[in-house]
């Protein structure tokens, strides 16, 4: 082998190795930061206590309120994004003329390119006042508004990945369905969507993972008040926003309060890591094999 090829091969290896090293490094930082925390706070208390007040005089370290906030905003986002995203995917595949499809897909992608801080601002100043006009009990900061806006943000993720999944279903199945007198709608929902289900599920899991890790929208519009509730009308705090709050605040480095963000970070990491692996596993295991 020529020397130049060896150098190139080494550089390629290096690029891959650095990526893995950084990942390992992040896990190391999270673990080494949270280990001292768990020496002072038991994991049982961390997982079961119903309050999260590390910055108050009366300190409680129950992660559940933050998990609940994360779960609530994510659930709202998926409730918005899944039906709309899937409808768009089906429309593009089964109904839209190919020229329209070529126009709409890139337009949708724009939704994903808007900076999240703009979305957050939009949630706080437009969506919340709009919702307040017909939901009287809605607080100025709440889970509903950022949840909806986050849902809008992840629509292209679901629509695009689901559309890919549906369009990779062989044409012959569509013909079989039409050939037996199915309408387009029946073909879409009884043949195409089930045949593409693994890809659609993967798109949803990746969207959930994105929503769980989303920070800016909820930091701006959800209110930063840890609260163990599933009520979408009141202020909540997610894991991500708590980390922002402490990182930007004047909590002294090395204190127990400071270490809470590593504990919160590791919970967040476990969630997104598990979701991404789940999607990878589903893709591998359930992807229908067509020749």
């Amino acid at each position: 082998m020529k020397a130049s090829e060896k150098i190139i091969e080494f550089l390629l290896w290096l690029a891959a190795a650095i990526t893995i090293l950084i990942t390992v490094g992040i896990i190391w930082v999270l673990l080494s930061g949270s280990l001292p925390f768990f020496q002072e706070v038991s994991i049982v208390e961390f997982l079961t206590a119903k309050q999260w007040t590390p910055l108050f005089a009366q300190k409680r370290f129950g992660i559940m309120p933050l998990v609940a906030g994360t779960f609530l905003t994510t659930a709202i986002a998926i409730a918005v994004a899944l039906p709309i995203g899937l409808t768009i995917a089906i429309y593009l595949n089964e109904y839209a003329p190919s020229r329209l499809k070529r126009t709409i897909k890139p337009l949708l992608e724009i939704l994903a390119t808007i900076p999240t801080v703009v979305y957050g601002f939009f949630a706080l100043t437009v969506v919340t006042p709009f919702l307040q006009s017909f939901i009287p009990g809605l607080a100025g900061f709440n889970a509903l508004s950022p949840g909806i806006v986050m849902g809008i943000m992840i629509i292209p993720m679901i629509s695009s990945l689901s559309e890919d999944a549906i369009s990779s279903v062989p044409k012959s199945l569509r013909e079989a369905s039409y050939g037996m007198g199915s309408t387009r709608l029946q073909t879409a929902f009884r043949v195409m969507v089930p045949a593409a289900s693994s890809g659609i599920i993967v798109s949803v899991i990746l969207a959930i993972s994105r929503a769980v890790g989303e920070t800016m929208i909820v930091a701006i519009a959800a209110g930063q008040q840890p609260r163990l509730t599933l009520n979408p009308l009141v202020p909540v705090e997610t894991i991500t926003t708590y980390i922002v709050q402490v990182s930007l605040g004047d909590v002294p480095h090395g204190s127990l309060e400071y270490r809470t963000i590593f504990a919160a970070g590791i919970v967040l990491f476990i969630f997104t890591f598990a979701l991404n692996n789940l999607s990878f596993w589903i893709k591998k295991k359930y992807q229908e094999k067509y020749d």
Binding site: S172, L173, E175, A176, G179, M180, G181, R190, A195
Partner: peptide, 27 residues
Amino acid sequence: DELRKKVGMVFQKPNPFPKSIYENVVY
């Protein structure tokens, strides 16, 4: 769709749905 209920079609390559045998027949 009504016409196709009267005029059935079998294609060049077998194209069963990724469902059970029973679900294919009763589709």
